[in-house]
Amino acid sequence: MPYFTRVGEVPRKRHTVFRQSDGSLFWEELIGEEGFVGDTSLLYHRNPPSAITAIERVDAPEDELVPNDPMTPLHLQPHQLPGKGDAVLDRFLLLGNDEVRIYYAVATQDSTLYKNSVGDELAYVESGRGVLETTFGKLDLTEGDYAIVPTSTIHRWTVADGEELRLLFVQAVGHINPPSRYLSTGGQFLEGTPYCELDIRRPEELVRGEGTHVPVVVRTRTGLTRHVHKHHPFDVVGWHGGMYPWAFSIFDFEPVTGSLHQPPPAHQTFEAPGFVMCNFVPRLLDYHPEAVPIPPFHSNVDSDEVLFYAKGAANTRRGTGVGIGSITVHPAGFIHGPHPGNVERSIGLQRADEYQVMVDTHRPLLVSAAARSVFDAEYPFTWATLEEKNSSA
């Protein structure tokens, strides 16, 4: 995040003597982006954070990604995926390319400790309650929350008793940030942006971990490795800086409206190398007296569009089987838009009732076997079949 904070015990000046109660030094860790010319933070550990006692290969091969060939629009139904368990090791890869990967997980137990050394990770909480525990502290999470975990942050996902935590993961190669046009040159959110500092939650309470010889799974560009740490990584007594996990709720996003249709960039939430993210939330619909308050047919010729239907109505897809928990993928080269009958039904409506999370990629997405296993084979033809159904009605 582009502004400074501090938590716990820290010295008055960085890189100076800072002693523990027994007289030994705290171990200072500098974590930073872009060769330390981007955002950085300093963490103070009780023990050396690089003390590891074993290195192991993790035998957890991911699904192979294959081209979407022949090119087709997709309707995925991740609620039909069979696995539940650990949000790290039991997540399903659905879609991806060299710059972004999209996963789905149903967590029923606390995850292994984990860090991604490739890029930032974002999780959207579809349902359930839990806590993101990190070396920076903890963030309580519930339905509708986005959580952004910076590269190489050791963390785990914990699940509230009796809950299932349903998570959509977006994994970057690089960093996920608010759109640069939302920020001043000093990093402050500008007036008129759809969310700001008051909406953002940062870790304020540190997490204390106990035990020795603690395994941490590390994601690299070639797979997963397990490092066994001599000391528990959650031994931080304080930290300060501008790089840390953060969260905000889709329910706090303030939608932009107009008298006529507003395109997706008006609803943008994040940007990252190779993709952007938007969300669509309940809002007043277009108020021009002759407005058609539903998106037109469109071809984003430089992007594949992924839309996760998190909550509320899917009015543009009525009659297709797309509903809560669905994911649609409309690849570049496919003209997509509202299904027959839905344009007429939208005229005169004054309000949208939807929560949708969008990922627009700059390069074509590849598809996993898990995605193909929950693919609705009839969806690509629904514009034609619904046209026939409406014309014969």
Rank of each mutant, 00 (worst) to 15 (best):
R14T: 03
R14K: 02
H15C: 03
F18H: 01
G38L: 15
D39G: 13
E56L: 00
D59H: 08
L65R: 13
L74H: 06
P78T: 13
P82Y: 13
G83H: 05
G85T: 08
A87Q: 11
V88N: 13
D90T: 05
L95V: 11
N97H: 09
E99D: 12
Y103L: 15
T108N: 09
V118Y: 10
E121C: 13
E126F: 11
D140P: 03
V149C: 14
V149I: 06
R156H: 11
L167N: 07
F169T: 03
H175N: 14
S180N: 03
T185A: 07
L190D: 10
E197Y: 06
P203R: 00
L206D: 11
V207N: 06
H213Y: 12
V214C: 07
G223M: 15
L224T: 04
L224D: 02
T225A: 13
R226Y: 11
R226I: 00
H229Y: 11
H232K: 01
W239D: 00
P245I: 00
F248L: 01
S249V: 06
V256S: 09
S259G: 14
P264T: 15
F270M: 00
G274A: 03
R283F: 00
L285S: 00
L285D: 00
H298Q: 02
D304A: 12
L307R: 15
K311R: 10
N315V: 09
N315P: 04
T316L: 08
T320S: 15
V322I: 09
H336E: 12
P338H: 00
E344Y: 05
I347E: 13
L349C: 05
Q350E: 14
D353T: 03
S368H: 03
A369I: 00
A370L: 10
F381A: 02
T382V: 14
A384T: 15
T385A: 04
L386Q: 10
K389S: 09
